[in-house]
């Protein structure tokens, strides 16, 4: 898994590539802790290139979302599809997070 960030006017775009599993998920949590400590509060996480997620991945998404909520921030998720979307749907996580079909849609929502 690799994590890249890009600052936009209204949000920080966090692009994840690869697998979010029990081995890689802690990297996600660590990265977000650093970003929150650095003062970031509004995130769009791009899942376009995430091809696998397990409960360990969902666990860090949830833990991170709680931290972001704690600093009155927000996380939007974009481009969740395929098997990853099925995992979100079956676990009920699809209703826990605001989900967008494209980065453009998430960015326009973040400007509100």
């Amino acid at each position: 898994m690799t994590i890249q960030t890009k600052k936009e006017a209204t949000a920080l775009i966090v692009t994840i590539t690869g697998r979010m599993d029990a081995v890689t998920a802690p990297e996600y949590e660590k990265k977000f802790s650093e970003l929150i400590t650095a003062g970031e509060t509004f995130f769009i996480v791009d899942f376009e290139q995430v091809d696998y997620i397990s409960s360990a991945g969902l666990r860090v998404l949830l833990a991170t979302a709680k931290k972001v909520k704690g600093v009155s921030g927000k996380i939007l998720l974009a481009n969740i599809k395929g098997g990853v979307k099925e995992v979100f749907d079956i676990s009920g996580f699809g209703t826990l997070f605001p989900m967008h079909d494209s980065l453009a849609s998430a960015l326009s929502a973040s400007g509100c």
């Binding site: 666990r59 949830l62 709680k66 676990s91 009920g92």
Partner: peptide, 19 residues
């Protein structure tokens, strides 16, 4: 797990056996 709970109430874990 109770998959209908809101984010603030959702327990971390419990999904393994379900999956």
């Amino acid at each position: 797990p109770d998959i209908s709970l809101d984010i603030a109430d959702r327990e971390i874990g419990g999904l393994g056996g379900y999956f």
